[in-house]
Design a protein around this nucleic acid. Structure first.
Lengths: 236, 236
DNA sequence: CCTCGAGTTTCGGTACGCCTAAATCCTACG
DNA sequence: CGTAGGATTTAGGCGTACCGAAACTCGAGG
């Protein structure tokens, strides 16, 4: 009855998981449809199948939630994806804005053996090129304690620990502006009337100021290196 | 009208190509079916589709032959497969009997960009771990001049340049017997009444004799390093 | 020259994953 | 409290790739 999952099913489960990774409302059918680029009706059908296989909990007209089995599957897909991205960047010279689609294809084709040998070769990294944590083979994830840049008050200092990878265009822009993983940031002030945040990027002579529009501010996650460590574990 | 090929179509074309790689009779429907592990009726249907797409020539009840387009596609698939096998062995520590199935999956998932960056990283190898030649990106193949061990007369000396990879069990056996790529062989004699060939493997103090049954003799290809070079270009 | 059987094709049917259109549900506003 | 409109599900279909069974072809042997 285990019938190893089709690549569509892997995609559904991965999207459901990702939706709750950085915020914990469960996903609705139409959000799922939008993220997968399929019709709502296709999602209804597929969710029924996922439920039959015990991968999700779902009652008609309700949201979709992963079961323990579903989460296990999702985590193996996420592990694959992030290890593949790391491989593409470290070993094949891809830039971080190019890796997503390639990894998306590969993650359905690689075997468990492949994944583990790859992890070995890469030295068991714990995060991918965008700073996303790589789950362990047994499905354990170390969620880095960090907050979206947009949530920080002026005066905060820290390093960038995660950069959302869903817009390659933005990744290229950030790379040009020297904003990469582990770059130091200092929140200077927020311009009034919902204007952009002003931050200081880098330290020493390479430092420069940068206006961060909201769309970017919510995609950059910052770990405070100065103050109290565990301050960011809960979320509203 | 180009409609990039489905992975089934890639498989069909690759199998058709492989059939004629070391011998040049065209493949029949039922042979195709056997190699793909599908029913004859499925092949009929699929061959019609391949023909519609201009990848094969075929008339009812006749054999199946690749067109120039079909061969181009086949060669890109073969290139992918063999580069992937090389990668798995060289970079991920796979043994040569493990790589086939993994490469089979991956070859449908990798992009052209991936393949070329991989080739780059591997130093543009010209043969895979079994000695099969890797076509260039433009579809040129250097067919190594070599003969099946079984076709050689006693007295012949040479090195193994290709080992057929369709039986992983045999590959493991050969590896245990120290028979690998570039191993020196010397045909000693053939035991009478269709008995096995006797060969001397290796040179110097590591050398040993080995009885080669026919099934293995036809899977090992030898390049004569002593005598006239170009003697093996044509085939019966 | 005719026939018989292996090889091949055609014919209906299945599973999967997707679609549009129509029916249904639920909620929030009036 | 009732209903309109958005969200969701059902119904009916499509394309791909597979199957088994039935129909057909063709060439070798009688």
């Amino acid at each position: 009855m285990k019938s190893q999952p089709s690549s569509s099913i892997e995609d559904y489960v991965k999207v459901i998981y990702s939706f709750t990774e950085w915020q914990d409302k469960p996903i609705t059918s139409s959000q799922l449809a939008a993220r997968l680029g399929v019709a709502n009706s296709s999602v209804s059908e597929m969710v029924r199948k996922l439920k039959d296989q015990g991968l999700v909990d779902h009652r008609p007209y309700g949201a979709v939630r992963l079961t323990a089995d579903g989460e296990r599957l999702a985590l193996t897909m996420v592990r694959r994806h992030r290890l593949l991205e790391t491989f593409l960047v470290q070993e094949l010279g891809y830039s971080w804005d190019e890796v997503h689609d390639e990894a998306e294809q590969l993650e359905h084709a690689v075997s468990d053996t492949f994944v583990e040998r790859l992890a070995e070769k890469l030295g068991h990294p714990d995060r991918d090129p965008h700073g996303d944590p790589i789950p362990s083979p047994t499905g354990r994830v170390e969620r880095p304690s960090a907050l979206p840049l947009g949530d920080l008050d002026p005066g905060h200092e820290g390093r960038i620990t995660r950069i959302s990878d869903d817009d390659p265009e933005m990744l290229r822009y950030l790379a040009r502006e020297r904003i990469v993983l582990d770059t130091a940031v200092h929140v200077v002030r927020r311009k009034p009337f919902g204007g952009p945040l002003v931050v200081r990027i880098g330290a020493g002579n390479g430092a420069h100021e940068f206006d961060v529009p909201d769309s970017i501010a919510s995609s950059l996650w910052v770990h405070s290196d100065s103050s109290h460590e565990g301050c960011t574990l809960e979320r509203a």
